Amino acid sequence: MGITDATVTAGWNPEALGEFLSNDEGRPVLFTNARILTMNPLIGTMTGADLLFVGSLLVGVGPGIITAAGDDNAIVVDCTGMTIAPAVVDTVALAGGRGHHSEYVATLTPGNTNDSLVVPGVLAADVPSAVTALLTRPEQIRALVAAGRPVLWAGTYVGRATAPEAGIPAAADLTGSPRVGVWIDRHDFLHQELTADGRYDETRGGRPHAYQGQYWIDGDRIDYLDDLGFWAYGEFQGDELHHAGYVMRLG
């Protein structure tokens, strides 16, 4: 489904959605007057509260933030009667498996990424029921926000990301890429050659062709599909390639 002028006009908070979708200036967005299930044990559940985010970053949660909305030129979304819950559920946190406040990453905690759901209160007694509503009754969802951007609004998808197609993608032509070459770890144990045709070939401890397969680079991420059938990944950090505990540089 796509968004139309009629959908926006008839939908929930249509003016705010229009501002939200055209927000290229980095304006703060404020969801106000909601019940908020933060899933953070320190903050807990708040009623009549506000959720403030800038870009993908959640910067404030609690009552009274609305007072600064005008000063900050915030986009204000009235969430009266709504419950806001995390769209990504930290089941480890729910089970008591987090030891420090900073570990509660999939919660509505300032400093975290804003992945959130706005659901009518009658459908969201708790976080599991809010997520169930998204999966079974998406037409009832008022908003799904992913990394600070609207994906679902008033039951209509407005910014759905394109999911990767099933199947193994074709290798890209990486001729001229500065990341093509032989990457060598600091102990000279692992040599990983990335070739321009999207293949890799590893030498480990002097053992040639220890692992071979395909690779794909997306930004600073590299994904590997070994010819044996397993997947692995690495990350480029400046002039280093980090993979499976190894730190490599171009030889």
Rank of each mutant, 00 (worst) to 15 (best):
Asn23Ala: 11
Glu15Cys: 11
Val88Met: 09
Asp72Cys: 11
Met46Cys: 10
Gly18Thr: 14
Ser22Gly: 12
Val29Lys: 02
Val29Ile: 15
Thr38Met: 01
Asp24Met: 12
Thr67Pro: 01
Ser22Lys: 12
Ala87Met: 05
Cys79Ala: 12
Thr83Ala: 01
Ala87Glu: 02
Glu15Val: 09
Trp12Gln: 09
Gly26Thr: 09
Thr83Ile: 01
Ala16His: 06
Thr38Phe: 00
Ala87Val: 05
Ala74Leu: 08
Leu21Asn: 04
Ala34Arg: 00
Gly26Ala: 12
Leu42Val: 14
Asp50Lys: 05
Leu58Cys: 05
Thr9His: 15
Ala10Ser: 10
Asp72Thr: 10
Gly18Arg: 15
Met46Ile: 01
Asn33Met: 11
Met46Phe: 01
Leu37Arg: 08
Glu19Gln: 15
Thr32Met: 11
Thr67Ser: 14
Thr83Phe: 00
Ile36Pro: 00
Trp12Val: 15
Gly48Ser: 07
Pro41Cys: 15
Asp71Phe: 13
Val77Trp: 01
Gly70Asn: 13
Ile36Val: 12
Asp78Glu: 12
Leu52Pro: 03
Val29Asn: 03
Leu51Ala: 06
Pro86Trp: 02
Val59Thr: 15
Val54Lys: 05
Asn13Ala: 15
Leu52Arg: 02
Arg27Met: 08
Thr45Leu: 09
Ser22Leu: 10
Glu25Ala: 14
Asp71Ile: 14
Ala68Arg: 09
Asn23Cys: 09
Val54Glu: 14
Leu51Arg: 06
Ala49Glu: 02
Ala16Gln: 07
Gly26Val: 11
Ile65Pro: 00
Ala34Thr: 00
Thr80Met: 03
Ala68Tyr: 05
Gly44Arg: 08
Thr38Val: 10
Thr45Ile: 13
Glu15Gln: 15
Ile43Glu: 05
Met82Gln: 01
Asn40Leu: 08
Asn73Phe: 02
Val54Arg: 06
Pro28Gln: 13
Ile65Met: 04
